[in-house]
Amino acid sequence: MESPIIEMHGLTKRYGSLKAVDNLHLSIAKGEIFGLLGPNGAGKSTTILMLLGLTEPDAGEARICGLNATRNPIPVKRKVGYLPDNVGFYNDLTALENLSYIARLNGIPEAEVQERSRQMLVEVGLEAAIHKKAGAFSRGMKQRLGLADVLIKQPEVIILDEPTLGIDPAGVRDFLELLRQLNQRQGLTILLSSHHLHQVQQVCNRVGIFVGGQLLAEGNVEKLAANLFNAAPWVVEVTLRTDVPQREALEKELLQLPGVKTVTGAANAVEVSGGEDITPDIVRCFVAKGLDVTGVHKKTYGLDEIYHRYFENNLKEDITNEKSTGLFQRSFLGRYKKR
């Protein structure tokens, strides 16, 4: 593996008694697309802000391109392009004016500013809207302009915070394709945070799952799935026409089947997870009891399930440890952050 371009060592950030980011260790290699996954308020944005030196960590350090982000924020910001979630532009200025302002702030020589801004707008597909005011832009166009903003300084690393939020599916596809091209053609390192799992799955080489300020797992999708589900990798969901009569008896019977680990579900649905694929046996069991099966669904594992599973496990731990206050605080932080 190539040398890491982003390194985090024991990064910690507290807001009062709440740990927004808790002892985070992570390194990302040059040329990688890394996806930071987690629910709202998990500490993704805080981590990104610490990487850019916009927020001071309480402990640990973040290094980008070998520079300490807290001590040398200006050189770091020269090499890193950052697209915040809810990126905003000056509504009274045109796309070109908005972009050339950023170009000038980055010290691009005055003679080149106009030309380069124009080129960049063409590259992200906004050539038709160069002289349109940014206030009239749609969400997707703003996101493109934001990307142009990030790219005009010719960064080595780009960090995107929830880049696909609020864009329609076609827009998302184009946007992710653009990211992939940038990564392949220019060897850019990309770090993106999201809770849109399928999109992350499409572009990322590696993902990290981030819940409650902690990195629960990292690796590529297959590795994560293998880690998580080696205990009970198969889940079958059976739907009945009516509510399940004598649920306890049925559950007992299902647990008798070879390999079945847990049986859950409510009303007219039953979820059976186990170590082997015994879908026919399960269905047979239902039929033998005279129940009307309307649907059988065997689940396969994508990032969605991986993520849900991690998130659920984490919640359960919280409850078993009687840390209900932590749960409350997390949802509170989520609200606070989105303000």
Partner: peptide
């Protein structure tokens, strides 16, 4: 509130 502050602060300026 426009979101331009974060964008400015992400540029290499003090």
């Amino acid at each position: 509130s426009n979101g331009t502050l974060v964008r400015l602060m992400a540029q290499p300026v003090y």
